[in-house]
Amino acid sequence: MGKTIIEINDLKRDFRMGEEVVHALKGVSLDIHEGEFVTIMGSSGSGKSTMLNILGCLDNPTSGSYLIDGVPVAQLNKNELATIRNEKIGFIFQSYNLLPRTTAIENVELPLIYNSKISPEERHRRSSEALKMVGLEDRMDHTPAQLSGGQQQRVAIARSLVNDPVIILADEATGNLDTRTSYEIMALFQELNRKGKTIAFVTHEPDIAAFSSRTIILKDGHVIKDEMNTNVNDAARELAALPKEDEE
């Protein structure tokens, strides 16, 4: 097993809603190791989103410890968290969140713009490499409006890869896509995972979870299930098995 990327111990997160205190996470402990492809599942209100926000260093836990790539981040301030996000995390969102009227390559460059250690030439080189990795090398100068949903999500994946993060966090990344395109995206994730990328994927669709190597299920702020997938589905094969689309 590779080195530990995420190390969470007794993590709690409370929200104050007026007089009431809502316990969104009630003591979660888990480790994610390098090279794992984990899906985090749970119904709404399970603490899934809170978990993802803390994993993504967008939010601080109320108590407990969280180490990412060996760095304790539970007590960091906003600016320090921004730097961690910039250097160690790649985000993918359900609604892609690409900048409108901005070319694919410029969208991919975005995280590197906030890292002044990287020169514009280096930024460009790494961005075109990332786009090549997701198979969009011939769409670099297209704006989101000129791309399909699947292509837009590929741009977003390239953006999450460009800073060479220790973990990619995907939030319902296939939620806006049809089955075929979802499978295409999952095939891409599996390919990236085979190349050594660590991925944490939040979803509520069991068939998507079946493509990952490990599934964690949250309920009412607790981990109720955390097990390795013995029977991992191959997205590429599933894709081939889908009924052929009508030729245009």
């Binding site: 906003k78 996000r85 910039n86």
Partner: peptide
């Protein structure tokens, strides 16, 4: 988004 990818 900019903040998520590291803008302070």
């Amino acid at each position: 988004l900019r903040m998520a990818v590291g803008a302070k």
